[in-house]
Each structure stands twice: as C-alpha cells, then as structure tokens.
C-alpha cells in the first residue's frame, strides 16, 4: 500500500531542471534512503515534498489525498513531519518547551506533562529538560528535533541528513533511533550522505542524479551497481 505517490514531478530554476519528471512511490512502513552526489537534486525534491517549493508540474499524493497545492503547515496536518538538516530547534525555549510546542496540537493539557516526560526519556534528554535548547550539544539538538518531528505522530517522517556533523558514535545511535521509530510503524524517508548510516538503516535506496531517479533497490543492489559508483566518482553524465 503506497503512502506517498509522486507522479511526473518537475521543477526548474531558470533553464536548470533540478527535478525532472520524477515518479516515486513510498510504501507504508518503509524505511527508505534517498542518496545521490552533490547537486543531484535531492534537496529540491525534498523541499517539493515539504511544500516549501512548489512544482511546475506533477502531483504529490499522501495517503490517497492530493497535497500538491497544500501549504507546508497543511501538509503537516495530513500526517507529514520533517527534520531539517540544520538543527531546527527553538534556542531560547527549554528542551521540554520545545517538545511542548510540537505536542500541544493533539494533546490535552492533562496529558501534556506525561507525554513530554515520556519523550524526554526516549531521547535521553531528561537531564536537560529545563535548560535552553540552544545549550545542547550538536548531536542532542539533532535528536531533539527528531523528537519534535516524532511528537506530531506522523505517518510519514522526512529526515534531511539527520547525522550531519555527528560523531560516528552519535551517528550510530541516531541510526538505532530511526530504526526503532520505523519499527513502531512510522514510514521514514531519509536524505543522507553518510553511506555507513545508509547501510545501517535502509531497507530500500533510491539514487538521484541530475534531477532524475537513477537507480532503485536494496542497499546491496545499489552498491553493486557500477553505474552508481561511476556517478559518485563523477565519470558518468548519463
């Protein structure tokens, strides 16, 4: 059963087609990684799904509903949630206030405190609950933002380079976090550079190149594909 269906999605800036006629399907329950060399059009594709950029052509369907014309915040109401590449947190608010801002939508006041405590435990941030989020370490900020994204109880969780700037140890912990979320039934789409991380988490991988889908398959299949290796080394312009 497809959760996210994208048909013929195109976007160009000036003469440059950064997303060219992309068809893409994400099944419910999947943990899918989107990779590709720099300038492949991953981030524009990602922003198109979020609704931050609007497409020239094409259609985006989330759980059977056409969301192509919806604004970003409306897409969130349809069950989409995102973690940005740069830690998107509210610096002067405390860690628990950050979570409260994410939770207060669909949670009555009586249950709020309990939910926040639960999430703090899950993220391993209970000790920092009252300190300003700006004081957290880089890795903790990334986790906090993942936590905020998860608080929305999304059907589809989008992660943009969730391990950017993390140490190998933090990266691995993040991988486990993402896997456990997926095990709880959240469909996850990750844009990632770090191939170790992709190997750790991905069930299926899509490779983008020059604004198109270049290859798709399991991690092993994609890694074994000599054309994929070639574009990463910059030899092919296919």
């Amino acid at each position: 059963m497809a959760l996210l269906e994208i048909q013929g999605l195109s976007k160009h800036f000036g003469g440059l087609h950064v997303t060219a006629d992309v068809d893409f399907t994400l099944d419910a329950g999947e943990l899918h990684c989107l990779i590709g060399p720099n300038g492949a059009g991953k981030s524009t594709f990602f922003r198109l799904i979020l609704g931050v950029v609007s497409p020239d052509r094409g259609k985006i369907v989330l759980a059977g509903k056409d969301i192509t014309r919806l604004k970003p915040f409306q897409r969130v109401h349809e069950g989409m949630s995102v973690k940005f590449q740069v830690p998107g947190i509210f610096k002067t608010l405390s860690v628990s206030q950050n979570l409260q801002t994410a939770l207060q939508h669909n949670c009555d006041a009586d249950a709020l405190a309990g939910k926040i405590a639960e999430m703090l435990d899950f993220l391993g941030l209970a000790a920092e609950a009252r300190s300003p989020a700006g004081n957290l370490s880089h890795g903790q900020k990334q986790w906090l933002e993942i936590g905020m994204a998860v608080c929305l109880k999304p059907r589809l969780l989008l992660l943009d380079e969730p391990t950017a700037g993390m140490s190998p140890k933090e990266t691995e912990a993040t991988g486990e976090l993402v896997k456990s979320l997926n095990a709880q039934g959240v469909t996850v789409l990750v844009v990632e550079h770090d191939m170790a991380f992709v190997r750790q988490v991905a069930q299926r991988v899509t490779v983008m190149h020059l604004g198109r889908i270049f290859a798709q398959g399991t991690v092993e299949e994609v890694m074994a594909d000599s054309r994929v290796e070639a574009i990463y080394l910059g030899r092919s312009h296919a």
């Binding site: 979020l50 931050v52 970003p72 915040f73 969130v76 109401h77 949630s81 995102v82 940005f84 998107g88 947190i89 509210f90 610096k91 002067t92 608010l93 801002t101 994410a102 939508h105 933002e145 905020m148 929305l152």
Partner: peptide
C-alpha cells in the same frame, strides 16, 4: 526563534 520549524510543526 525559528519560523520554518514552527511552520513544519503544523
């Protein structure tokens, strides 16, 4: 603090 983040919390 972060309008983009706030919007993407719905």
């Amino acid at each position: 603090e972060n309008p983009e983040r706030a919007e993407m919390l719905g």
